[in-house]
């Protein structure tokens, strides 16, 4: 009896709620440690980035306009869907080089991290807002509001947990984002877009590209309609380039270096605050 022939998965990028191929038609080949070919992924271009950026901007008003409670429900839904696909992600992380045990721990941590940030959606405002006792007859209060559209460049070696840890605080706070997945883990990143897609996350809120950081970093940090950039690699040249490009329109630059995304120190509300603006309102008090 002949062996059943596998149906292989095509890994696509995710823009505006649709699974598409790069407009370039070019691809990169992923291999494992022993050099075996794993999959082909899209080699996204600056045009793909621009499309994704337009989608993210279009989605921003609607996403931040949802109630905080509703955003929390959607993040929690992502956790539920990821839980349901545990086996798939463990398999893909293993292909990408993780041990079975490590892959399992990582998927579980990613699920829990989504639950963690789901909980923050309707709470960080209570931690970071204030009523300010000014010296005049005014009611004065300060509240956080999302910065806007965020470029997220996942580090080359980051994995599922790294990707989730960067996306979750950004969208929990009402921002939308364009993500460049780390190349080594592009398969699980592409599969994570399927979780996003089936979790009631509105189109355009999270857009995920694959490709070469060297080709996209400049565009992702210079685009004048991007409000913030989130970067976690430690290479000084890239960081300098990002900061220089950010100065074109005073983007918020957030660097967060880590050698272990599993560490619980990546669970805190201050990462949400990094992508917030504080708005203070003065209002008179009198009859």
């Amino acid at each position: 009896m002949s062996k059943r022939l596998d149906v292989l998965k095509t890994y696509k990028i995710y823009i505006n709620g649709q699974f598409v191929r790069s407009e370039s038609g070019h691809y990169l080949t992923l291999t494992n440690k022993s050099g075996e070919q794993l999959a082909n992924i899209c080699r996204s271009t600056r045009k793909d980035f621009r499309q994704a950026m337009v989608a993210a901007r279009g989605a921003q008003g609607g996403w931040s306009g949802k109630t905080a409670y509703n955003r929390g429900q959607i993040l929690y839904r992502m956790a539920e869907i990821l839980e349901g696909r545990r086996a798939q992600f463990i398999h893909e992380l293993s292909l990408e080089g993780a041990s079975a045990k490590k892959a399992e721990a990582e998927v579980d941590a990613a699920i829990d991290r989504l639950v963690y940030f789901a909980g923050w959606c309707d709470k960080y405002q209570q931690i970071f807002s204030s009523v300010n006792p000014v010296q005049s007859a005014h009611f004065n209060f300060s509240t956080p509001e999302p910065t806007g559209v965020v470029s997220i460049i996942a580090e080359e070696k980051s994995s599922l947990i790294g990707l989730v840890s960067m996306i979750a605080p950004v969208i929990a706070g009402g921002n939308t984002c364009v993500v460049l997945a780390g190349q080594r883990n592009a398969m699980s990143a592409c599969s994570f877009t399927e979780v996003i897609h089936s979790s009631d996350v509105p189109s355009g809120v999270i857009n995920v590209l694959t490709g070469l950081k060297s080709e996209l970093i400049s565009h992702m940090s210079s685009h004048m309609d991007i409000n913030a950039i989130f970067y976690t690699d430690s290479d000084t040249d890239s960081k300098k380039l990002i900061q220089e490009n950010a100065s074109l329109n005073i983007k918020r630059v957030v660097f967060e270096e880590t050698d272990d995304w599993m560490d619980e120190r990546h669970e805190n509300p201050y990462i949400i605050l990094d992508f917030q603006e504080i708005k203070t309102t003065w209002h008179p008090v009198s009859v």
Partner: peptide, 8 residues
């Protein structure tokens, strides 16, 4: 839902 998120 709201209180669940506070537990941790």
């Amino acid at each position: 839902f709201y209180n669940a998120g506070w537990a941790d």
